[in-house]
């Protein structure tokens, strides 16, 4: 049975709800901001928001999130302007190769919605499931703390 996905405010009908959300986003909807990094929910590169909650799209079937609001990195800009978290990542240069960045930013957005003034410990706890192999963690913490001021 087809499933309905709401991605970045747009409705899509999906004929293959058993496939992973990551594959659907990347292959069918051309939303390649979410990345494959490990396929076991360990690295966070595939993170998207489902009803505001950070979700590992590689571990989620499309059918399981039918009807829910899905936000990918492509849907984060508002009126063509970067989201405050995106802006903070740019200002702090909280990226090197950038492959983990989409997932990091969405994880941070979810954290800030729940905890607008996160401590360093809050950030580490919330972001521990995200891997940055370039080791930019201190800057990502700084970016999230900077974004909390402006958002």
């Amino acid at each position: 049975m087809p499933a309905t996905l709401h991605v970045n405010g747009i409705r899509h009908t999906i004929d293959t709800p058993g496939r992973s959300l990551l594959t659907i986003l990347r292959e069918d909807l051309d939303l390649t901001g979410a990345k494959y990094g490990c396929g076991e929910g360990q690295c966070g590169a595939c993170t998207v928001l489902v009803d505001g909650r950070p979700t590992r799209s590689c571990q989620t079937t499309a059918g399981a999130v039918a009807g829910k609001q899905i936000t990918t990195i492509e849907g984060l800009e508002e009126n063509g302007r970067p989201h405050p978290v995106q802006q903070a990542f740019l200002e702090v240069d909280a990226l090197q190769c950038g492959y983990c960045t989409s997932g990091m930013i969405l994880g941070a957005v979810a954290l800030l919605r729940k905890t607008p003034q996160p401590s360093r410990a809050d950030i580490v706890r919330a972001m521990e499931g995200h891997i940055c192999r370039c080791g930019v963690y201190p800057r990502i913490v700084a970016a999230i703390q900077r974004a909390k001021v402006s958002s």
Binding site: E91, L95, T101, S102
Partner: peptide
């Protein structure tokens, strides 16, 4: 200087090899 094309990365628009079609 900030990463010259940083915006493409934080918005998910940059296409890495696995993103190409």
């Amino acid at each position: 200087t900030h990463k010259v094309d940083g915006l493409a990365f934080v918005t998910g628009k940059h296409k890495y090899t696995p993103d190409l079609k």
